[in-house]
């Protein structure tokens, strides 16, 4: 069973490397957003798989926290695209809609 986890870890490492390459060369900004989101998901999986690989899966809640932060970060980046800013104008338009 440990072999399965080891192979999974290696596969996740390769996937993370590919995602980093995509985040670097990605022609459009959306490629980069998606690549970073993928890296976050891979980090979540890496923590979970490493916990079972090490025989101590107590840190799964940290993986959950990473998933939440990944989600919030992606929302913030997409808001940056939508409004062009995260500061005054973004808040202003929200206030106007209410």
């Amino acid at each position: 069973m440990e072999t399965v986890f080891a192979i999974t870890l290696i596969a996740l490492g390769i996937a993370a490397t590919l995602a980093i390459i995509r985040a670097t060369i990605g022609p459009t900004s959306f490629d980069r957003v998606l690549a970073v989101n993928t890296i976050g998901s891979i980090a979540v999986l890496l923590i979970a798989v490493y916990g079972f690989f090490d025989g101590r899966p107590e840190f799964l809640d940290i993986a959950l926290l990473y998933a939440l932060i990944n989600f919030i970060g992606t929302i913030a980046i997409l808001k940056f695209f939508r409004f062009g800013t995260l500061g005054d104008h973004g808040l202003h338009e929200e206030g106007d809609e209410q």
Binding site: A16, A19, I20, A23, T24, G26, R32, V33, A35, V36, I39, G40, A43, L46, I47, Y50, F59, I62, Y66, N70, G73, I77
Partner: peptide, 18 residues
């Protein structure tokens, strides 16, 4: 792209800390 990569850096660093 640099900001995106720094976010990825933090996530990988956090994984290393775990």
């Amino acid at each position: 792209a640099v900001v995106m990569l720094s976010g990825a850096f933090s996530l990988v660093a956090a994984t290393l800390f775990v």
